[in-house]
Design a protein around this nucleic acid. Structure first.
Length: 117
DNA sequence: CCGGTGACTCTAT
DNA sequence: TATAGAGCCACCG
């Protein structure tokens, strides 16, 4: 059972959960928000990810996609298909456009279940 | 303190 | 199957 640091900041909680995403797995903004008790606040999770770029802490933000498995944040990884490439290296299957995960259910990691709230 | 902003998601048309 | 609108709420200036 992983231990989530008792962070008071919403962002920090988000980061904690994202860091716990296992290799080869992905989750959604909404799932994280839901786990944190703010299921309608997926936007905040996305925003935290945006801010994470500015941090020194490494966050596997590429493992966080939207509910459809769409790489809505790929542009934030700068050039090319870096985000998709990172995921492909983790055996995540993509469609030909390298923008959407196929068989998302196979790769989905739900913090609510995995962390057995 | 107030309001704009957003890497989302759900619902209705 | 698409598109559009509304709700959501922490952060920053």
């Amino acid at each position: 059972m992983p231990n989530i640091a008792q962070e008071n900041d919403f962002f920090s909680k988000v980061y904690d959960v994202v860091r716990l995403i296992p290799y080869g797995k992905v989750t959604s903004y909404g799932a994280i928000a839901n786990y944190l008790g703010a299921k309608r606040s997926a936007r905040m999770v996305g925003w935290a990810m945006n801010a994470s770029h500015h941090l020194e802490h490494k966050i596997p933000a590429h493992r966080v996609v939207n509910r459809q498995g769409l790489l809505t944040g790929k542009a934030f990884f700068g050039t090319g298909n870096e985000m998709a490439n990172l995921l492909i290296e983790e055996n995540i299957s993509f469609d030909k456009d390298l923008i959407k995960i196929t068989g998302l259910e196979n790769h989905f990691w739900d913090p609510m279940l995995a962390l057995a709230l």
